[in-house]
């Protein structure tokens, strides 16, 4: 393990006093021979907004997918709010978690995808109410009431009864944000949420996210190429390269005076 990989604890997350919500402990992930994450350790404290930056293929998205249990780590453990995510303790030993345990821990995590991944078989409102009703057991009226509030938050109240095919990409992504928030997650994972959008639709989506970042206490983990947005909302920025965190710190520091050459190269390429 490289020295850099342990350092994020020191400055990226001032709160190492046990209030961390997410903890990656020596996580390794390979796809075939390709090591995507290499013995990675990092924590995210509750309520923080952390942005992951770095060249594509550096493992940023894999971190979000690991947290969402869409892929499983090859080595190491991930804890969310103190519970193991993909393992559970049985008789003092760590064993791969069963579906029930995974679903219990996963409750606190929401995700917004690059390609929205809305359900085309449901209209806008039902995309948002489906999971609260059938996963959380919320009453239908309550779920719809909440969905209306969320649609208002993302500025789509008038689109409620439409099919997805009638919405623009930016509108669909805002529905997807509302859908994720409807589950009242403690952690929101944002996976390049503006990358699939036409340039003129990006600002609307980012405005909604800024609003959420500034008005709620939801912890955010964000993979993005929108550096201005990252600077606005982040408490910490982690720079990834080749499966490792090579540098981390407050956005002002990373963006204005990066220490690492790779960071400097990367930023000059994207800014």
């Amino acid at each position: 393990m490289s020295a850099e990989n342990t350092t994020p604890n020191d400055h990226a997350n001032p709160a190492v006093d046990g209030s961390e919500l997410i903890r990656f402990d020596k996580v390794t992930k390979r796809f075939g021979d390709n090591v995507v994450l290499d013995n990675l350790c990092f924590d995210v404290a509750s309520g923080k907004h952390v942005t992951l930056i770095g060249p594509s293929g550096s493992g940023k998205t894999t971190i979000l997918r690991l947290l969402m249990t869409l892929v499983k780590p090859d080595e190491g453990t991930i804890k969310v709010a103190g519970d193991y995510l993909t393992h559970e303790e049985k008789g003092g030993r760590l064993v791969p978690a069963g579906e029930r345990h995974v679903r219990e821990v996963r409750k606190s995590i929401g995700m917004v995808f690059q390609q929205f991944n809305l359900f085309p078989n449901m209209k806008v409102l039902r995309n948002i109410t489906e999971a609260p009703v059938h996963v959380l057991g919320m009453g239908k009226d309550e779920a719809e009431e909440r969905a209306r509030e969320l649609l208002e938050l993302v500025g789509l109240t008038d689109q409620m009864d439409k099919h997805l095919s009638q919405l623009s990409g930016g509108q669909q992504q805002r529905v997807a944000i509302a859908r994720a928030l409807a589950m009242r997650p403690q952690v929101l994972l944002l996976d390049e949420v503006t990358s699939a959008l036409d340039p003129e639709l990006v600002a609307g989506v980012l405005d909604v996210l800024r609003d959420i970042a500034h008005t709620t206490d939801i912890t955010m983990l964000c993979v993005t190429h929108e550096m201005g947005f990252a600077r606005d909302i982040s408490d910490d920025v982690l720079m990834f390269d080749e499966g490792r965190v090579i540098e981390s710190g407050a956005p002002e520091k990373i963006f204005s005076e990066p220490e690492h050459d790779r960071t400097r190269e990367f930023l000059s390429a994207v800014l």
Binding site: M68, R103, K107, F113, F119, E130, A180, M183
Partner: peptide, 22 residues
């Protein structure tokens, strides 16, 4: 299917509510 996991549906719910209707 991934969106279904992200919303914490059970495998049976994912099949019945998301995959089969599509």
């Amino acid at each position: 299917r991934e969106a279904g996991i992200a919303l914490n549906f059970t495998p049976w719910q994912r099949l019945r509510k998301i995959v089969l209707p599509q």
